[in-house]
């Protein structure tokens, strides 16, 4: 029973990280109709930024996070303006290939700037370890939960009260109407990329604090796509719930099935992709996604 509960709790923490990455994806998709495969690379860059500010520049945690957010805002804005803007109205394939290419470039830049090295900053972030009886709750779960709640609350406030947030929601609804009332859609696009970048970078700092950062850390973005699909690609609440579901299922499945498999494991790596196939066959629009009706 302890084993099971421990798996569930760890899975929960994992799910929160997936959810954070998925939220970034959903924001961009909602506001600018672009599928951003490079979200995992934002996370990786975030991890490296965390290392740079926390270890190299030896800044306090709050300053590091602020500095990383500042970099993320600039990065998001530049990416949108330079690469995605020319593709407005292009096919899905073009946009996906563009973001994949962006991901490759970001990986190259990370190798160029940080030497592709494994950087760890164990102990630089505050570690909160909560112990309840037999099992302990991992710090990334707690930090993940706290940061996710903060991010979601901030986004909720933004979308509900801020003028720009309202404009973003309106843009998600109908671009042409929005333009006709005098809202500049292009700047909405830029802002959505900035927000997604910030969310990605923040989750990167958390992840980096837990297990260190390396270029191949960006693979976590591919796994988060399963979360996006399960939650329904345009629902933030769905992303959070799906993140938890997948995190827990993945961990429990790996815990019990790995020893039974002929070559002894690796199920956790492929589990999200099996979920993708199942979701696509039985519920293509996810748990909370909008079903779109096509006309000829």
């Amino acid at each position: 029973m302890t084993f099971f509960l421990q798996l569930v709790i760890t899975g929960f923490g994992l799910g929160m990280v997936y959810a954070l990455i998925a939220i970034g994806f959903v924001i961009i998709l909602k506001c600018s109709k672009a599928f951003n495969i490079a979200q995992g690379q934002f996370v990786m860059i975030g991890g490296y930024l965390g290392f740079t500010f926390l270890v190299t520049f030896n800044l306090p945690v709050w300053a590091s996070i602020l500095a990383a957010i500042a970099v993320a805002v600039v990065m998001g804005g530049l990416i949108e303006r330079l690469t995605l803007r020319p593709l407005v109205g292009q096919s899905v394939l073009a946009i996906i290939m563009m973001t994949i290419a962006l991901g490759t470039i970001l990986e190259g830049v990370a190798t160029l700037v940080w030497g592709g090295e494994y950087k760890a900053y164990h102990g630089a972030l505050p570690t909160i370890t909560l112990k309840v009886g037999e099992f302990s709750i991992p710090p990334e779960t707690l930090i993940g939960i706290i940061v996710s709640i903060l991010v979601v609350v901030a986004l909720m406030a933004l979308f509900r009260y801020a003028k720009i947030g309202l404009a973003m929601r309106a843009t998600a609804e109908d671009e042409q109407v929005v333009q006709s009332v005098g809202i500049k859609v292009t700047s909405i696009y830029t802002i959505s990329w900035m927000i997604a970048c910030v969310v990605g970078v923040v989750s990167g700092i958390i992840l980096g604090g837990v297990s260190g950062v390396m270029v191949s850390m960006s693979e976590v973005g591919m796994k988060a796509l399963a979360v996006v699909l399960l939650g329904g690609i345009d629902s933030i609440g769905g992303a959070i719930l799906a993140g938890i579901i997948i995190g827990v299922l993945e961990n429990v499945a790996a815990g019990y099935l790995d020893p039974l498999l002929p070559s002894g494991g690796g199920l956790a790596n492929v589990f999200p992709f099996i979920i993708i196939i199942i979701v696509l066959i039985f519920k293509p629009h996810g748990l909370f996604g909008l079903k779109r009706i096509e006309r000829i």
């Binding site: 020319p86 962006l102 490759t104 190259g108 190798t111």
Partner: peptide, 25 residues
């Protein structure tokens, strides 16, 4: 460093796709 030179291949790969998507779709 040699590694920086090697990382340029990653950047170039991405850049080629970007350039073609924007200018020569």
């Amino acid at each position: 460093a040699a590694q920086a030179a090697a990382s340029l291949s990653l950047i170039m790969r991405g850049l080629v796709i970007v350039i073609f998507l924007i200018f020569e779709p």
